[in-house]
Design a protein around this nucleic acid. Structure first.
Lengths: 113, 113
DNA sequence: GTATTAATTAAGGAGTTGCTTACATGCAGA
DNA sequence: TCTGCATGTAAGCAACTCCTTAATTAATAC
């Protein structure tokens, strides 16, 4: 994997773990230090650090260092793309219209050429 | 894996691969055989079979056997839960209201007790 | 300076993923 | 029944995930 996975795969992969989803849910309450974040989990600090790295790699959190505390902040932008993908596939009605659109555009391209 | 991951993790994990997302997109056009599905990918048939198993495990497709062809059909129900989770975290405004709701419910529970 | 606190990095191990090739299964038609 | 086609299963391998404990960095307080 020399090039690394695409952004959307990184986001979905980050969300594919209950601990990481719980961390994101807790971050909705506002920026939080790693220690506070780790407290409710029966898991070592390094394990939490590694989960945070996965979330950071997906762009879902930002870590800023103030003194010896690292504050984690929620970043929701990557979820827009994820939400768009899911919703596009979720609703069969819209899908049919999407496909109709594509067909029409194809036809238009053909008659133009 | 005696207990296995939860349903939501399975769905996000299934979506965390471009090949599988492409398969789902292609299935929006209607039920398709494995051969047709595999055709555009530079990948062996067994690899596609394994991707289909991941999608089936997540409940995102259904496989039915007619003659020697296995027909794959899209199932969008699992995406509802995924969409709900993402949307709940996507919009900061709604999150704040959700949190306010939770706090109010907590307070109510406390005064009741 | 030394000690304490907060967090990360390093190293390692059990299990999983994503692919491969080779083999097996199961149906259809001569 | 034998042949061919569509698909799945088995086995193997490199890379990755998710956790661990031990060592390290960095800032604060004495």
């Amino acid at each position: 994997m020399q090039n690394g996975p695409d952004a959307l795969s990184l986001v979905f992969q980050a969300l594919a773990d209950p601990t990481r989803r719980e961390i994101l849910s807790r971050l909705r309450g506002g920026p939080t230090t790693v220690g506070e974040l780790a407290e409710p989990f029966a898991m070592s600090r390094p394990a939490i650090s590694q989960h945070l790295r996965v979330l950071e790699r997906a762009g879902l959190i930002e870590r800023t260092a103030t003194a010896q505390w690292r504050t984690c902040t929620l970043r929701t932008e990557p979820l827009d793309e994820a939400s768009a993908w899911v919703d596009r596939h979720r609703d069969e009605w819209n899908e049919r219209f999407d496909l109709l659109d594509e067909r029409l555009r194809e036809l238009k391209g053909q008659t133009d050429a």
